[in-house]
Design a protein around this nucleic acid. Sequence first.
DNA 1: CCTTAATCCTGCACGC
DNA 2: TGCGTGCAGGATTAAG
Length: 290
Amino acid sequence: MPELPEVETVRRGLIPAMEGRRIVSARLNRKDLRFAFPDRMAERLTGTQVERLDRRAKYLLARLGSGETLLMHLGMSGRFSILADDMARQPGDFVYAAPANPAHDHVVLEMEGGVTITYNDPRRFGFMTLFDTALEAQNPYLAQLGPEPDSNLFSGPHLAAALKGRRSPIKTALLDQRVVAGLGNIYVCEALWRARISPRRLAHTIAGERAERLAVAVRNVISEAIDAGGSTLRDYAGADGALGYFQHRFDAYGREGETCRGAGGRVCGKPVSRIVQQGRSTFFCPDCQR
DNA sequence: CCTTAATCCTGCACGC
DNA sequence: TGCGTGCAGGATTAAG
């Protein structure tokens, strides 16, 4: 389940295969993923150069010489693999070949220099679209996003302001990409555990020192996860095939019934609980988190 | 303005 | 072994 750290890991893996290379050909093996591909997508990609590969929240943004941006979202199970003959130790070597069912290879980009980038996505929760880069501020996927966790705009006061008046549980509010960009179920659980805040607490009660603690927890857990190369869960691996290690460091997510390690330096030892909120599993320690 | 539920999709773990 | 069931869940849409 790619959240911000996983998407960032994928971006870093794709950079050598994409940046500065022309797209020689683009093949779409179906007409849609989660949504229909835009009109003439293959033609609009063919012949243009990828000048830069950016990321915003969970979106990858390939900046094209044509003046358009290719926006890509990995959904739940989206993966890129790279086959290259000039990036491997020996020509023709697989830089990365995930054990992926080729029936779910939906987009294939042949890049300049003998590099093939394949997008595989069994569940097809991912999507791709093209937009005029100059109109990014109006793009519906990007315009409403909250700050990146590592930006100067993201802080305790920002969180308090964004959560003001919201009567939903903080767990739900943090999944709202307008509050902070890039969090999903896993890192929300981890951040709340670190901040010792109950996932059930109403969002508008997060202010002051508590908001500060939460902002720090979000920033730190995201930054540590990026440094670890993200998390490798059921169906995720980095673009370069390197497996993320952060899942070994989860304190809450997936640890139902296991011993709480004690949040914020406190001694605990009680079992981690699982509840369902908005139809999603939430893992937390009722003892540590209030 | 707010909140909630349903929707999309496939693979896998589980119980019988 | 096979079959049915539930779960994983991000973003959007519709409904309340």
